[in-house]
């Protein structure tokens, strides 16, 4: 029951993009097209899920026993960077078609705050293994959902007449603001 709660919470009310501001750069930057938004979402989901498992093991079985928890930022960044490299190579070898559609987003993920953010939140919230897994998958699904919805809105917005100084990013941010209102807890209570 608790896990289901956590799952829904991490997708909707605690959405990492709209509530915790993680992964804003890809959210604003790459989400002007529906297709690329979906690709980015899938790539992020894969990377977050796999690297959260690795960092969980790394943190509780290596860093904590050796009393070097201050290295968590450094080591997590390394894990994410390696993860991205490995996934890129694997996809390139196994499925060249998928590589062409996902490949361009993968290198960007290394510097995506959403990935490192979720990994760090897993640690600060002291989740157990199952909770950690639920939270990671939920958050990345939430990321995909929001970035996809947002991209469809932005595609529609491009055809509308927007005041000159609002064109591009400002109107995107205001759209994001309205979306954040919809996702926030105030309306649900």
């Amino acid at each position: 029951m608790n896990l289901i709660n956590l799952f829904i919470m991490s997708i909707l009310t605690e959405n990492i993009v709209l509530m915790k501001f993680l992964g804003i750069c890809p959210f604003i930057g790459t989400s002007s097209k529906e297709k690329s938004a979906f690709g980015m979402g899938v790539a992020v989901t894969i990377v977050i899920t796999l690297s959260s498992i690795i960092t969980h093991l790394l943190y509780y079985y290596i860093l904590v026993p050796t009393d070097t928890t201050y290295l968590k930022t450094l080591s997590f960044v390394l894990v994410v960077a390696c993860m991205v490299q490995i996934i890129e190579m694997l996809i390139k070898r196994r499925n060249i078609k998928l590589y062409h559609s996902l490949g361009i987003y993968l290198p960007l993920i290394t510097t995506n705050c959403a990935v490192l953010g979720v990994l760090l939140l897993n640690i600060t919230n002291q989740y157990s293994f199952l909770e950690m897994l639920t939270f990671s998958i939920g958050s990345s699904l939430g990321f995909t959902l929001v970035i996809y919805i947002f991209s469809t809105i932005r595609e529609a917005l491009e055809r509308r007449n927007v005041p000159d100084s609002f064109k591009g990013y400002p109107i995107a941010l205001i759209t994001a603001s309205i979306m954040a209102l919809l996702f926030s807890r105030y309306l649900i209570v």
Partner: peptide, 21 residues
């Protein structure tokens, strides 16, 4: 709230754009 953050930044950016133009 988070929604306010997006709104403030969006409006400020629009003002900044208008001034530059």
């Amino acid at each position: 709230s988070p929604a306010g953050a997006f709104l403030t930044l969006g409006l400020l950016m629009a003002i900044f754009n208008a001034i530059r133009k």
